[in-house]
Amino acid sequence: MAEDILFAGAQQVRDALSYEELITALRQCLLDLSTGRVIQPLRSVLRIPQHQGWFAVMPAVYGDVMGAKLVTFYPGNAALDMHTHQAMIQLFRADTGEALAVLDGRVITEMRTAAVSALAVDTLATPHVKVLAILGSGVQARSHLAALARVRRFQEIRVWSRTADHAQRFAGESGAQAYPSAEEAVRGADVVLTLTSSPEPVLAGRWLKSGAVVCAVGAVTPDRRELDDEAMSGAVIVESREAALREPGDILQSGATVTAELGELLNGATFPRTDRPVVFKSVGVAVEDIAAAKLVYEKLRPRQTAG
């Protein structure tokens, strides 16, 4: 019945989620993905060329729930002071197909993306990292800073943006230091986040210190990339091999080889560490959204009436 379906907007979703819970839930979710306990096809993407955007459908079955995220990306929205990503998530029971919830998906996307990066940093970076460099100063920069604070304490946070005043604003809000160039921000950093919508590389491998950990997040389609070939020449960790070999330009255009899935490492797998950077190439996969949506639903679901 429609009156039994949970409808939750952006603020309700944000109030229901915490990064601590998300990181824990996503750890299990990615373990399950890498051990074959998730049904998840590749996302289906419909291009909207007249607006340089796209619309994607991302379904998954995960345990006792299933659902789909409907998400759009319109990069031109930034000039209109609007979010570039918009989304909703529909959640169902896996055993009966009963509709459970319709949730704002933009906030879930924002928070689960940052939580997955925090999980990657916790897995790949040493406990003693000191310097964090952030390329990009938008929504994801803010969410990543909040999520990473749950797994590491950085002594120095640097930020660079293609729009200098945005970087300055972010620095003022967060206590970071704004840098005039990406290279200056990256040189000597232990962990680097690329969180831009750039269609071409903003990070050069020659800038990276030995053994740096990079979370490459902003480019998720074949025509976009944030890292150059040299940056992609070391170990490459992904959420899903299937998605990584079909979707992200960082891998497809560089010809990089996938080293491991993050869930495999969480399950005890290892890989040889060298002086080359380690890149976590995130594309975002549907089961992460469904796992996060399930958390929201369990917090907010309508109470069952007796009788």
Score class of each variant (00 low, 15 high):
1 M>L: 14
1 M>H: 15
8 A>N: 10
9 G>A: 14
10 A>H: 15
12 Q>F: 08
15 D>I: 09
24 T>S: 15
28 Q>V: 00
30 L>N: 08
31 L>K: 15
37 R>C: 14
40 Q>L: 14
41 P>Q: 13
46 L>F: 11
52 Q>N: 10
54 W>C: 14
59 P>M: 14
59 P>K: 12
61 V>R: 14
73 F>T: 07
74 Y>P: 04
74 Y>N: 14
75 P>N: 13
76 G>P: 00
77 N>M: 12
78 A>Q: 13
81 D>K: 12
82 M>D: 13
82 M>W: 11
86 Q>A: 15
86 Q>D: 14
90 Q>I: 06
90 Q>V: 08
91 L>D: 10
104 D>N: 09
105 G>E: 10
111 M>A: 05
111 M>K: 00
114 A>G: 04
115 A>P: 03
116 V>E: 03
116 V>D: 03
121 V>I: 02
121 V>P: 01
123 T>P: 07
123 T>C: 13
126 T>H: 12
128 H>V: 11
130 K>Y: 00
138 G>L: 03
141 A>W: 03
143 S>R: 04
156 E>H: 12
158 R>V: 02
163 T>G: 10
178 A>I: 01
180 P>L: 15
192 V>T: 12
195 L>P: 00
206 R>D: 15
207 W>K: 02
220 V>W: 15
227 L>K: 05
230 E>W: 01
233 S>C: 01
243 A>M: 04
244 A>W: 04
264 E>P: 10
269 A>I: 00
269 A>Y: 02
269 A>L: 05
270 T>M: 04
271 F>V: 09
278 V>N: 04
280 F>G: 08
290 I>Q: 04
304 Q>L: 07
